[in-house]
């Protein structure tokens, strides 16, 4: 709220077309939402975010778990991870587009590949800290692999998974915009490129604001309730 106020005052003082007031941006957001463009582009982008996020989290968690549990695998893949971790997102996206074409699966996978290594690294830390005593308990009581994963391993990884999910969502939606800007003909990234060419800062900020609202809604509506649920056993 304080931020919005500061923005409003600064913009009114500047009085420039390049820094629209907060009220103008909100009004534009409502206008764009009413026309349907905003919701369409936002929806497309969110779908891409969701797909990339799901791939990065599932594969990253599986990889991180395997790396944390098996040392030889960790040694074999460690340098690969460092390469992927330090590969600029832009380079990875351009290479993927060049190799596999300007299509939807390539876009989604390119984004997922940008996030996957950091998920794997975070989960690996969690997997290294797994409680051996509980694993032995599960083994001696002959719990199956799936039951062990679900009831013994994953609950211990929850804090790491939440950390990976939060930072992941933030990074992924930024990268999705780049992917859209470079090689898609719809989505928030595509729209922003259009408005960039027109120097339409009001619309650019309206899209940004809309996305921030969505992310905040996910935080309040999904992560926090989910976190409360999985942490219900903590005193």
């Amino acid at each position: 709220m304080g931020f919005l106020l500061l923005w409003e005052v600064a913009a009114r003082l500047a009085g420039s077309r390049l820094l629209p007031t907060a009220s103008a941006v909100v009004a534009m957001m409502a206008h764009e939402a009413a026309s349907g463009d905003l919701l369409f582009n936002l929806g497309i982008t969110l779908l891409r975010v969701a797909a990339s996020f799901a791939i990065a989290m599932v594969l990253g968690t599986a990889l991180g778990l395997a790396l944390g549990v098996w040392r030889w695998l960790d040694l074999a893949f460690d340098s690969w991870l460092i390469v992927l971790l330090n590969m600029p997102a832009l380079v990875l996206i351009v290479l993927m587009y060049v190799w596999f074409g300007l299509n939807e699966p390539t876009a989604v996978i390119a984004v997922a590949l940008n996030k996957l290594p950091s998920t794997a690294v975070t989960v690996r830390e969690g997997a290294r800290a797994l409680d051996r005593g509980l694993m032995e308990m599960a083994r001696s009581y002959r719990m199956g692999r799936l039951a062990t994963l679900r009831h013994v391993v994953l609950p211990q990884l929850h804090p790491y998974l939440f950390a990976a999910a939060r930072s992941g969502l933030a990074i992924i939606w930024k990268i999705v915009l780049v992917v859209e800007l470079l090689g898609r003909s719809n989505g928030v990234g595509f729209a922003i490129e259009e408005y960039f060419q027109l120097f339409d800062v009001t619309r650019i900020l309206a899209y940004t604001l809309a996305f921030i609202l969505v992310v905040q809604a996910i935080e309040w509506g999904l992560w926090q309730p989910l976190e409360r649920h999985v942490n219900r056993w903590r005193r």
């Binding site: 009581y141 013994v152 609950p155 999985v230 056993w233």
Partner: peptide
């Protein structure tokens, strides 16, 4: 089939008492 009582209880902290039994 084994029942094992370890030096510490080694119950799953994130499962209720009954779930801890039911799981095995």
């Amino acid at each position: 089939r084994l029942g094992v009582v370890f030096q510490e209880p080694r119950l799953l902290p994130w499962r209720t008492l009954w779930e801890n039994l039911a799981l095995v």
